[in-house]
């Protein structure tokens, strides 16, 4: 199977659905995340919600290219249940909003990360990218 080509985020229209992806976060990946941010809370074998979002965004970027000068300007997250390290996670996402302002394209990516039971984390990420910028 060929990985989808990466497309500048500015090119995606509102309503665009990204290809569903499946990924797993290992305990080592979660540990590396916690060490990097300096979080010493005990999460056991669970995935901190913001780690799931950060690593989910990374998974989405197999499809999305960000032009130079792009900025992450907002983040929403809603936790419905705990996700566990090592579980297969399904990622689905779409462009929920798109607007242009002062030479920038403002895109809101809405995505959900769910385990096999369907429990999930939902997130909305706002990205401001230069219109016409090369990715």
């Amino acid at each position: 199977m060929t990985a989808p080509a990466r497309t500048s985020i500015t090119a995606f229209p509102r309503g665009h659905e990204f290809s569903p992806a499946t990924f797993t976060l290992s305990p080592d990946q979660v540990r590396a995340y916690l060490d990097a941010v300096g979080d010493t809370n005990d999460y056991g074998n669970t995935i901190p919600p913001l780690a799931a979002v950060a690593l989910g965004l990374d998974a989405l970027q197999s499809e999305i290219a960000l032009p130079e000068g792009s900025l992450h300007t907002g983040q929403e997250i809603e936790h419905a249940a705990i996700l566990c390290a090592g579980d297969a996670l399904k990622l689905s996402g779409r462009i929920a909003q798109r607007s242009e302002r002062q030479g920038y394209v403002i895109s809101v990516i809405e995505f959900e990360i769910a385990d096999i039971d369907g429990t999930s984390i939902r997130a909305r990420t706002t990205i401001m990218a230069p219109a016409g910028g090369d990715a």
Partner: peptide, 28 residues
Amino acid sequence: GMLVLALIGEMMRASFGEAWSTTGKLKA
């Protein structure tokens, strides 16, 4: 931005434990 935001996640988890992970909402 997500690294800075992680401090808020850490703060809320430290105060509310699993309740944060199962019922929390954050808009930033």
